[in-house]
């Protein structure tokens, strides 16, 4: 009787691999558990992925609060955070569960204002900051025009610049740039698509053509 050593070896390693596991769910759970343990000591940025009726959303926070809300394209968002805030980025679903809950309640029409803290560090100081702070004061179900926001930010003639500032909003939905419309009453613009702007307004009972 001859023993095929290579065959025996590969059978053994194959069986070992199968027995060792882990399943994809085990890996995901271990990563999430470690990420939650790391926020906010070893990690500086935590994120969670939130499927929603208006598409995939990534919420990212620092220990100061929500630092960005982003539609889709997770890798790009995380790379941006790694270079602008810190590369010590982890997925931490439990840590962000309260923020996630607020977002989901809002999207389901059950929450009119957000209580989560905000980290404004990705907003450029100056005019952009003033525009977004003014936008944060526009209440649920109300609308403002670019001109009104520009005026509130101290530049009555800066409607166009206000539009650009809103386009760079790292905290959409929570800082409700979707509530800012064109001066003539038209929908205006929205960086991540006018359909989303329409949907977000519809949640608040605002219908715009």
């Amino acid at each position: 009787m001859t023993i095929d050593f290579n065959q025996a070896e590969s059978d053994l390693t194959r069986d070992l691999r199968a027995a060792i596991g882990p399943t994809a769910a085990d890996v995901a759970a271990a990563q999430a558990r470690a990420g939650d343990a790391a926020a906010w000591t070893a990690a500086e940025v935590a994120w969670v992925h939130v499927p929603s009726p208006i598409g995939e959303i990534v919420l990212a926070a620092t220990d100061a609060g929500l630092v960005t809300l982003s539609y889709g394209e997770r890798d790009g968002v995380l790379e941006h955070l790694a270079t602008t805030v810190s590369p010590r980025v982890v997925e931490a679903p439990r840590t962000l569960a309260p923020m996630r809950r607020e977002l989901e309640e809002h999207l389901a029409g059950r929450r009119q204002r957000f209580d989560m803290p905000l980290d404004w560090r990705l907003v450029r100081p100056g005019f952009t900051m003033r525009v977004l702070r003014a936008t944060a004061d526009v209440p649920f179900g109300a609308i403002a025009t670019y001109r009104e926001i520009a005026t509130a930010a101290g530049s009555p003639r800066g409607a166009r610049a206000a539009g650009q500032a809103l386009g760079s909003n790292p905290l959409p939905i929570v800082v409700p740039c979707h509530r800012v419309l064109a001066t003539g009453g038209g929908l205006g613009g929205y960086t991540s698509g006018l359909d989303r702007k329409r949907q977000l307004l519809a949640i608040e009972g605002v219908v715009v053509d």
């Binding site: 890996v27 990563q31 790379e79 790694a82 590369p87």
Partner: peptide
Amino acid sequence: VPLPPFSALLEAHGGALLRYLRA
């Protein structure tokens, strides 16, 4: 060279890391 977000590193190697540790 900018570091990748740490979670990308884990996404790429977390499975192998956990297999190693289990073994």
